[in-house]
Design a protein around this nucleic acid. Structure first.
Lengths: 221, 221
DNA sequence: AATAAAACTACATGAGTATGTGGTGCGCAG
DNA sequence: CTGCGCACCACATACTCATGTAGTTTTATT
């Protein structure tokens, strides 16, 4: 069977450990629909190569000599915004995970993944998915869950949430009153309660806390 | 082989479509390590049953008669906080996905998933993972990516970011001045620039926009 | 029907904020 | 050295906000 390079998933590997690098390259290149364009031991080398602008996928370690994986992702995100980067590392602490994802990585794997899962992850990423090892996925999902449970203070009711959302938009009390059909004083009454329940003493603090507790979604207006 | 119920993954299904419900139940119950405790066509029925307090996993549709899946997850999150709920629906729009995840679902699947993937998803969820179909995962990951690059207006510099963070904490100009070693008027100067660059006209708007653009991280203080 | 709690209105006051105008010093390109 | 832009300081003014106190209406409970 002839290999038509256009139909293959082209991969670039950046990993400083020699054995890991060669191991991945061998495993992946063996697949019929994959081709490993090149494998580098640092971001600097990779970014100077031609391979980086031809590849479909980058598989990258997070701890690298010189430019770190996080910085590497940021760079790639800027220069090649649509190039999916999968981080694969031994670290699963929150900071590394979220820094990598915030920097622009589309997936995050533990190095201990099986070759089968690795291949699947690359196919997922290439198809617009976001491969993650299950416990990483749970970490990510947890950031969406309301802290709840501990019942920290009182919960905001419907009306208060509505008003809190308007507060986040920077509206004046009068403007909020028009939206929720209340007098300025009615708005004030609720805002006082919001402040008490959230234990804050200013508008911006309430917004900040409201967002961090996921009571309201920041408005990408 | 004798089935020891303690070693099995116990499942409750909530799905109003009769064929889907029976189909899932049959497929899952056929697995050696799964047992479908019961299958309901509404949240109300399920929550009144004994099965709900014995199960390890809930597999739930999002569009249900009576209480919706979202409300259902919220309820379960409150009454059985450690019970993992997997949403399985035909909808993959942002609102449904994020509402479900925010409400407390640990996974989100499209109904078209293969039986194999469904089984794997349930095992993942039971092992503390968060199963998602690839395009859902990408949606989720995207929320971490900085909007970046589009260069919407000007970017904030180091000093401005520092001050914006203090603004989010609700500090007064004077208090901020002490932190960043500036006079009140110096602080004002930067805040003016922040407002201009973010195109806002109030503190809370700046905080809100700063967080949504991921310029600052909300403080879980 | 009586009572309590919650939702809302009203008014007042001091503090904090948004915004404009203008001033000083500093580094840098012409 | 001169003009330009940037970071910073100063002052003024109108407005918004945080907070207290107090009264009224609505709603739920008994």
């Amino acid at each position: 069977m002839e290999r038509n390079v256009e139909e293959l998933i082209k991969i670039v590997i950046i990993e400083d450990n020699h054995y890991m690098r060669e191991g991945w390259a061998t495993i992946l290149d063996f697949e019929e629909d994959f081709v490993v364009l090149d494998a580098f031991e640092s971001c600097e080398e990779a970014f100077e190569s031609e391979a980086i602008s031809k590849t479909n996928i980058v598989l990258m370690d997070i701890e690298l000599p010189g430019m770190s994986g996080i910085e590497g992702v940021k760079y790639l995100q800027k220069e090649h915004p649509d190039l999916p980067v999968i981080m694969a590392t031994v670290f699963d602490d929150d900071k590394n995970v979220f820094d990598a994802l915030c920097a622009g990585a589309v997936g995050y794997l533990m190095k201990k993944v099986s070759p089968e899962d690795l291949k699947q992850a690359i196919r997922d990423a290439h198809d617009g998915g976001s491969p993650m090892t299950p416990n990483i996925a749970r970490k990510v999902i947890k950031t969406f869950h309301a802290p709840s449970e501990d019942e920290e203070g009182e919960q905001l009711n419907e009306r208060e949430l509505e008003i809190l959302e308007e507060l986040a938009k920077g509206k004046s009390y009068a403007a909020i009153g028009e939206v929720v059909y209340l007098s300025v004083n009615g708005v004030r009454y609720h805002i006082r309660n919001i402040y008490r329940k959230l234990q804050v003493h200013s508008r911006s603090e309430a917004v900040s806390k409201g967002i961090s507790r996921r009571l309201i979604h920041p408005n990408n207006s």
